[in-house]
């Protein structure tokens, strides 16, 4: 993990301009995604996972804005590049798969058109060659009868099949990073497993990096090489998946693990974390963040310092950082 990673997010801050001033939805977030590796992003609903993804794509919804920090793609800060440069990156070097397969495809164009479109845009292929690529992609995501399905419309596909189409679309230009924002949340369990298996297979073939946003810690354990944990707009822990799943440094991360039933990880069970618990209390509201550590009000270990001073990101192991005053002592113990 030396040299420049494919993607590096440095101290990224995103604010929403509201009537009562700016509200911070992301605060000082840093991440590194290495070439060809999978980064799992976890955290409770509303903690800013999707905002991070959209900020990287520079597709934040109206009213949201990157107010500080950098997003470096192979060293190039894309928060400052012109929109034309961004368009050349989107769908070509970095593509994105969204959570809602039912609404993320345009209902009035055939899936073939929608896949071929990206290829035409970025690689200047003519209609025939682009269609050929679309067929290849449909085959790659294992949609039966690819040639015939090319001319079908999204409403003629099931949710799982639509998500395969989305993946085909995302992969069509052989991007170096795919951001998958909860790609399986809207799907039933057996289909979820198929989609994850497909993603892993395709990653092995193409060597693309994946940023996998998910609530499924089981999937993280299986697929992710690295993990970043978000809480209330902050990235509070990050590091190699093994290290985080086995020795979570941040009390929130440990809490999150223990919330997951049957985590497919023997180590977690060994620590007695398989007993289903929940983290008491609620995520603080945006714009009404507590002073100090944002997790302090819910944290069993919090003391006065936690409640008054925001903890810095500290190194707790090789490439493993956590923003917690107690982190070091936790790991030592």
């Amino acid at each position: 993990m030396t040299g420049t990673p494919f993607l590096e997010v440095r101290n990224l801050t995103v604010e929403m301009k509201g009537e009562s001033g700016a509200i911070r939805v992301l605060d000082d977030v840093s991440l590194r995604i290495e070439r060809g590796r999978t980064m799992g992003i976890v955290g409770e609903s509303g903690c800013g996972k999707s905002m991070t993804a959209l900020a990287i794509m520079r597709l934040l919804p109206p009213g949201f804005e990157i107010t500080a920090g950098q997003v470096l793609v192979e060293g190039e800060d894309i928060t400052r590049v012109p929109e034309a440069r961004m368009r050349a990156l989107r769908g070509n070097d970095i593509s994105m798969i969204f959570q809602e397969p039912m609404t993320s495809l345009n209902p009035v164009f055939t899936v073939g058109d929608q896949i071929a479109e990206a290829v035409k845009q970025h690689q200047g292929l003519d209609a025939g060659a682009a269609e050929q690529r679309a067929i290849e992609m449909l085959k790659a995501v294992q949609i039966p009868g690819a040639e015939a399905r090319l001319h079908a419309y999204p409403h003629e596909f099931s949710g799982g099949m639509r998500q395969r189409v989305m993946i085909a679309m995302a992969l069509a230009c052989q991007p170096r990073l795919i951001i998958a924002d909860e790609p399986t949340t809207a799907l039933d369990v057996t289909v979820q497993a198929q989609i994850f298996a497909l993603m892993r297979e395709l990653q092995q073939e193409t060597g693309t990096a994946i940023m996998l946003i998910t609530h499924d810690l089981g999937a993280v354990a299986e697929l992710a090489d690295d993990v970043a944990v978000f809480y209330a707009g902050k990235r509070i822990e990050s590091g190699p998946a093994g290290a985080i799943l086995r020795h979570a440094a941040h009390p929130y991360t440990s809490g999150l693990m223990s919330c997951t039933p049957r985590l497919r990880l023997s180590a977690a069970a060994r620590d007695g974390a398989a007993v289903l618990r929940e983290i008491p209390g609620m995520v603080p509201q945006l714009g009404r963040m507590p002073q100090g550590c944002r997790f302090a009000p819910r944290c069993p270990l919090a003391d006065d310092r936690c409640r008054s001073v925001m903890p810095p990101d500290v190194e707790v192991g090789p490439a493993h950082a956590a923003a917690c005053w107690k982190a070091e002592t936790e790991v030592m113990a």
């Binding site: 989107r90 070509n92 969204f98 345009n106 164009f109 845009q121 970025h122």
Partner: peptide, 26 residues
């Protein structure tokens, strides 16, 4: 404001195509 417009943008399509092709047809 629909999801598929975000998808079209995420593909790297120019804004003209997003509006006059993907959005207008709907």
């Amino acid at each position: 404001g629909q999801d598929y417009i975000r998808t079209a943008r995420a593909k790297g399509l120019p804004e003209n195509k997003v509006i006059w092709k993907h959005a207008l047809r709907n």
